[in-house]
Amino acid sequence: MPGLEDLYREIILDHYRSPRNRGELESPPAVRVEGFNPLCGDEIVVTLDVVDGVVADIKIAGTGCSISQSSASLMSAAVKGKSVEEARALIATFKGMMSIHEATLPSGAGTGDGAASEAPEPQAIDIDALGELAALQGVVKFPVRIKCATLSWNTLAQCLDESAAV
């Protein structure tokens, strides 16, 4: 049985208590997207400045639980200064970690054989590439909280889409 220490790692609590890149960038020029978790009413605001294909600045606002807030804080620190491609790759890796069983199944599987109900070891995901973000790995053991952890990442993905469309 997963324990609370799997969920509330020290890095997570640190980012929850002292969130990085807190606030909002002036928009425009920054792209601004609001994300909602209809299950719990949490909301997050991501503002993003992309300059020459690089995430020049990012700020996080909104309210939420320790998992959604720390995930957003860790995310902001991880993507700041990265290229848009690197940021997108990180989103894919992180979301892969949050839905391990889907990522490791061959495409087209997912019906019937029962493999999807077990969470195998994360072979397909390069956890090392995630650095501090790997601290959020334990969230997978608490399925109700996965949406908390992915809220900011989905919102960031939307930001990148919108900045690409500008």
Partner: peptide, 18 residues
């Protein structure tokens, strides 16, 4: 946050809504 409260309470076997 209520989610976090509920998570800790669950560890004590206490079921509340958040």
């Amino acid at each position: 946050h209520p989610h976090d409260i509920s998570q800790i309470l669950d560890e004590y076997g206490v079921c509340v809504r958040a």
